[in-house]
Design a protein around this nucleic acid. Structure first.
Lengths: 205, 205
DNA sequence: TGTACATCAGTGAACGCGCGTTCACTGATGTAC
DNA sequence: TGTACATCAGTGAACGCGCGTTCACTGATGTAC
C-alpha cells in the first residue's frame, strides 16, 4: 500500500492514469514519458523512481488492461452460465465492451507494439483472459454434432478474430471511416451467423 | 515518366520503396524521413523535392498499397466468377494474401494512423477495394433464402472484420504470440462456417 | 515529548541525440540558336 | 557542331525542438532513542 500524503501520494498510479489518457488521446505514437510526467504534475526524472523507462510505463498500462479484461471476461462468462452458448456469446460481447470502456488500455494492449512476452506478469495477465474464452469454447464444443466438430481452439480463434476486426475497423473510428452499422449489432449478428453455421443455433431461429 | 539517368534517376519511387522497407522492419513508429532518405542514398532535404513531408510520404505508400490491394481483389473476384460464392470466398482470401505479400503496404494502410480521407486520391484508392468486396457480397446475397437475408453490406463487413482480425492477431506475428493454426486455414474455415450459417453452403458438405 | 538520524520520493539542471524542416547554393541535364 | 542560357534535382549546413535519460541534490517523512 502506498503511503498517503507522502510527497505526491501515489505517483505510480497517477502516471499510469496520465499515460492511459495520453495514449487514448494521441495514440501510442503520441505518448511521451515527459508529457505523462507533466500531467501527473511531476518532473520527468521522477518517473524513474517507479518505472525503468518509457516502455516499462506502457507495459504496466497494458498489464492493468489485461487484468481488467480478464476480470470482465470472467464476469461475462459467469453470467452466461450454466448455458454454454450464452456464456460463449457473452465473452464475445465483453471484448467489444472492453474496447469501448477502456480505450487507453485497449490501445496499450493491442496497438502499442509492446510484446506480451515482455515480462512474466504481462504474459500471465494476457493468458488469463484468453483462457476464459478457451474454456467457453471448449464447453460449447460438446454441443456440436460430433460429425463436424472443429477443435475448440479454432472457433475461439474465429470469435476472437471477428471481435478484434470489428473493433479495429468499425468501433475505433479511424478518422473518416464510418461504420455502416453499430459495431455492437455487427458483432452480435456476425457471431450469430457463425454459431448457426456450427449448428449451435437452429437455422429458423 | 521520370527521365533516366537524371541525377538520381527515380528518387520518388526509391523513397517510397525505402519507406516501405523501413515500415516493414520497424513498424510505423520506427519509420523516419531521414532514414528513408539515407537508404535511398540521398540527403533528407532532397525528399522535399517530391513530397510535402514525412506524412505525405507515408500517405503515398498507403495509396500505392490500396491500389495494389484493389487490383488483387479485382483479380480474385474475376477468377471466382461466374460463381458468386467462389468469387466471394476468393476476395476474403485475397485480403490475407495481400497482408502476407505486401507487409509494408499493409502496415502503412492499416497501422500507420493515416486517415484515408487525407487526400481524394487516397480515399478513391481505398474505396475501389471495398467496392469489389461489396459487389461480391451483393451478388451472393441473391442466393440467400429471402426469409433471412441480411443486408449485403453487413456480411461483407463480417468477412472484412474476420479477415482483418485473423491477419492482426495470427498472421502478423506480434512477437511472442503464436498462432494455434495456420492463418490461411483459420480464415478459410472461419469463412466456411460463416457461409454455412447463412445457408449458402449445405450443412453436410 | 523532543532531538538526531536515516530514508528515499521528487527536483532541477544538464546531456547527447535524431528528428523534421528551411534555405541559399551548385552543378548536371536539357534546350535554343 | 558548338556555345549560352534556363531548369531544377539534390547538397550541405544550420535551426529549434522535444525527447529519454543521468546525476548530484534537497527536503519531507518516518524511526530510534
Amino acid at each position: 500500500m502506498p503511503k498517503r500524503g507522502y510527497h505526491h501520494g501515489n505517483l505510480k498510479s497517477a502516471l499510469v492514469e496520465a499515460a492511459l489518457q495520453l495514449i487514448e488521446e494521441k495514440g501510442p505514437t503520441g505518448f511521451t514519458l515527459s508529457e505523462a510526467a507533466k500531467r501527473a504534475g511531476v518532473t520527468p526524472a521522477a518517473v524513474y523512481r517507479h518505472f525503468a523507462g518509457r516502455e516499462d510505463l506502457i507495459a504496466e498500462a497494458a498489464r492493468q488492461g489485461y487484468a481488467i479484461f480478464a476480470d470482465l471476461m470472467e464476469h461475462a462468462y459467469a453470467e452466461g452460465q450454466p448455458s454454454a452458448l450464452a456464456a460463449f456469446e457473452a465473452t464475445g460481447r465483453a471484448y467489444l465492451a472492453f474496447a469501448r470502456k477502456f480505450p487507453g488500455h485497449y490501445v496499450a494492449m493491442f496497438e502499442s507494439g509492446i510484446s506480451v512476452q515482455r515480462t512474466p506478469e504481462l504474459a500471465a495477465a494476457a493468458a488469463r483472459g484468453s483462457a476464459i474464452l478457451g474454456r467457453a469454447a471448449s464447453e460449447l464444443s460438446q454441443h456440436i454434432p460430433a460429425e463436424k466438430r472443429p477443435p475448440p481452439e479454432m472457433f475461439s480463434a474465429h470469435i476472437w478474430a471477428m471481435s478484434h476486426g470489428v473493433v479495429e475497423l468499425f468501433a475505433r473510428g479511424s478518422p473518416g471511416t464510418r461504420s455502416p452499422f453499430p459495431p455492437e449489432d455487427l458483432l452480435e449478428t456476425g457471431i450469430g451467423v457463425y454459431l448457426r453455421g456450427l449448428g449451435l443455433i437452429p437455422p429458423d431461429e
